[in-house]
Amino acid sequence: MARDKAMEILVTGGSGYLGKGIVEALVEKHPDWKISALDIRPPPAALAERLYQFIEADITSAESVNNAFVDYSPDLVVHTAGIVPARQSRYSTRKRDWERVKAINVDGTKHVLDAAMVAGCHHFVYTSSCTVVIDDLAHDYDNMDENVPTGHATLHYGISKAMAETYVLSPKHAQNGLVACAIRPSTVIGPGNTAVISLLHDLIAKHETYFIVGAGDNFFDFMYIDNAADAHVLAVENLLTTRTAAGHSFFISNQEPVYFWDFMAYVWAQFGHVPRYRFHIPMSLAWTAGFVLEWYTWLTGSAPTLDRGSVYDGIRSHYSNNDKAKKILGYVPKIGLVEGARLTCEDYKKHLAAHATESQAMKKLQ
């Protein structure tokens, strides 16, 4: 790493949750670097003030991305821009949903990488996902590492991330001078991210906290946002110096696999809810109920928590071995899962309170 030169780093998806975390981590650790963000929407004002520049671009458009790299060649690109299908969309089989995911996660990645290389940037950190493996709902993946093959995912997100990762790490690009690696985070939680916690919190109001599907002994991986951002910073530093991470993918998590159903109970407890009892539902019964609710959803347009996909997700074990990231990147999670989950819940309480205040104000105006 050239100490006499201020490195120029571009973070795509810099206005998104993980992207913001990576930008903040880079700015904190390397205040002399020029950190830019590319996104379809501007970042929060507080973050924008810390950026070298913000570039507005739509990664689904090759022209838009190419324009972003006109007269601009960063030393490295961290490509984290993407779409994560949430809730029932996670299990969608509709072609139009796939086309949207593909346009952003696969085609968007190709547009960014191609434009960066044409501009002379040959260092690239790709934000992949553990779903390149675990979106194969038919199997458990205990202590999985990077030797587990991809290509078996059946859900849109995992399929798209595997395709994009394969493109980035293609030997063809390496032969053309690309120095790249892929980071595969587990499910990320943290303040400001309501996706996971809102789903678990909603179960309280729906009175769906009293059952456990299957034996309830399946393990799951979560990770705190700061740890995910740190891993990306370590990857950036590696590719700009020793380059020992080049050509590799890395699973990262909090290295604290937990019983999935116990984690939910911990989250509920943060909101003062402790189920009086919990009974086990056989997987076959839950699967049938999920099938019925899918039809109910189709007929009514409602959004039930339970469907066949969530049943499969709720009974499987999948957690990763981070030894490779530890050895090559020096990755060690700094914030423990218990503390990370507590901080996430505390932030969500503020979100709920703000939403309640806003709703009351709207009612007064009506």
Rank of each mutant, 00 (worst) to 15 (best):
P304I: 11
L299Y: 04
A303L: 12
G330K: 07
S302F: 00
G309K: 08
D307N: 15
G309Q: 05
S320L: 02
T300W: 01
V311D: 00
K324Y: 02
T305F: 13
G330Q: 05
R316T: 03
L306Y: 04
R316A: 02
S317N: 10
T305E: 09
G309F: 02
T305C: 07
Y312F: 08
G314E: 01
K327P: 00
S310H: 06
S310P: 03
H318E: 05
S320D: 03
L329M: 12
R308Y: 04
Y319F: 15
G314S: 15
D307I: 08
N321Q: 09
W298F: 09
T300H: 03
V311F: 01
S310E: 01
D313G: 04
G330D: 00
K327R: 15
K326E: 07
S310R: 14
T305R: 13
G301S: 11
K326V: 01
Y319T: 12
T300A: 06
T300P: 00
H318W: 10
N322A: 13
I315N: 01
V311N: 05
L306H: 07
P304A: 12
S310M: 09
H318F: 11
R316H: 02
K327V: 08
I328H: 04
S317R: 10
N322W: 00
K324W: 01
D313F: 03
R316V: 01
N321T: 08
I328A: 11
T300I: 06
A325F: 05
V311Q: 07
P304L: 11
A325H: 06
D313S: 14
Y319G: 08
K324R: 15
H318I: 04
L329A: 12
K324P: 01
A303V: 13
G301E: 00
G301C: 11
W298L: 13
D323F: 02
K324I: 04
D323K: 14
P304E: 08
D307L: 08
G309P: 03
S302T: 13
I315P: 02
L329H: 08
N322D: 09
I315E: 00
W298P: 01
D307G: 10
Y312C: 14
L306R: 13
I328D: 00
A303M: 12
Y319H: 15
K327S: 14
Y312N: 13
T300D: 01
L329P: 05
Y319C: 13
W298Q: 13
I315F: 01
S302G: 09
Y312L: 15
L306V: 12
D323A: 15
